[in-house]
């Protein structure tokens, strides 16, 4: 079996040199720049750990103190393990409040890469929603803001690019999920200077390989992968089925690690954001990035194995 480390284009590597200048302006990542767990953000060359933390459903716990503390524990272990990118949305109920609670409990760690979204029909209300989200997180500004599910994307992108130009935001992105509106998303990727794009990609939902992932590489757009486990449904379907004997060769000790390794082995993927309420799961997820990733031949074998189950 051959193993490969992700490679990047010369253009991206040159941009990486520019990151030296940015390093003085922005908080340094918790991990070293040479760490294999990191991926480059093509537009700046900043390095980002390839396993992030999603918050859809899992962090929407309302005012339940016990669950709030549990989520704060997940965030604490994520940060302790070297994780940086935490992603949320105003659509996710109380998730932003939960993240704010967790970060506050942690003493506001500077390494966190705060990614959120704008999600409202009204472009005029976008700024106000972003400000509300920022207050909930309890941070001076977001690192990344994305237009959620392409909702009123033209107007919101204007707002986000204006914020970026004013120094109120570092990166601009756009999202979709579950394979919806890929054609429209591709059009936005081609015509707008996006830093990030977020969509669903996993070992069974592979439509993104046809158009979005190659386009992201070509355009130098960082890719965040959401719903890696199909909201847990994929893990549920595979539960009780044996991992292949060769899973050890890539250090996959569970189905979750097997799936994450498949996703991260695509060279266009910058970061995957599994969501969880459990500390052991967050540790298991983050650990994936520290070991070898499968090459193209093994990726095909992995997909075929899961398809045959």
């Amino acid at each position: 079996m051959s193993i490969h480390r992700p490679t990047f284009s010369r253009r991206i590597l040159l941009k990486g040199l520019g990151a030296l200048a940015l390093a003085t302006a922005f908080p340094a990542p918790a991990l070293s720049a040479a760490d294999p767990r990191m991926r480059l953000i093509p537009s700046t060359g900043e390095r980002l750990p390839m396993v992030g933390l999603g918050s859809w459903t899992t962090f929407n716990v309302g005012g339940d103190q016990q669950l709030l503390d549990q989520c704060a524990d997940v965030i604490a272990h994520f940060v302790k393990a070297g994780g940086r990118l935490i992603d949320s949305s105003p659509m996710y109920g109380s998730s932003q409040d939960t993240i704010g609670y967790g970060l506050n409990k942690l003493g506001r760690p500077g390494a966190v890469f705060a990614a959120d979204k704008v999600w409202t029909w009204s472009v005029a209300e976008g700024r106000e929603q972003i400000e509300t989200s920022r207050r909930k997180w309890g941070i001076p500004r977001f690192d990344l803001l994305q237009v959620h599910n392409l909702l009123s994307w033209e107007g919101h992108l204007k707002t986000l690019f204006a914020m970026k130009a004013a120094g109120d935001l570092r990166y601009v992105g756009i999202t979709t999920s579950d394979g919806r509106r890929h054609g429209e998303l591709a059009q936005v990727m081609r015509t707008r200077p996006l830093d990030f794009v977020q969509f669903t990609y996993n070992i069974v939902d592979r439509e993104a390989e046809q158009r979005l992932l190659p386009l992201a590489m070509d355009r130098g757009i960082a890719v965040i992968v959401n719903r890696p486990f199909q909201q847990g449904g994929l893990i549920e379907r595979l539960r009780g089925r044996p991992l292949p004997s060769w899973a050890d060769e890539i250090g996959a000790g569970s189905w979750a690690q097997f799936i994450l390794k498949f996703i991260l082995s695509h060279p266009a993927v910058t970061c995957v954001i599994p969501a969880t309420t459990r500390v052991d799961h967050v540790q298991e997820n983050v650990a994936v990035a520290g070991s070898v990733l499968p090459d193209e031949a093994l990726r095909r074998r992995m997909a075929a194995y899961v398809r045959a189950l």
């Binding site: 899992t58 929407n60 716990v61 309302g62 339940d64 996710y92 394979g179 919806r180 909201q231």
Partner: peptide, 26 residues
């Protein structure tokens, strides 16, 4: 909402069953 037929009930899921029942209990 475009491509509405691609949405399932789970696409609109906001909270887990555990959070829901704990909310009622509390």
């Amino acid at each position: 909402m475009t491509e509405w037929w691609t949405y399932s009930l789970h696409s609109f899921l906001l909270f887990s069953p555990r959070v829901y029942w704990r909310l009622i209990e509390h």
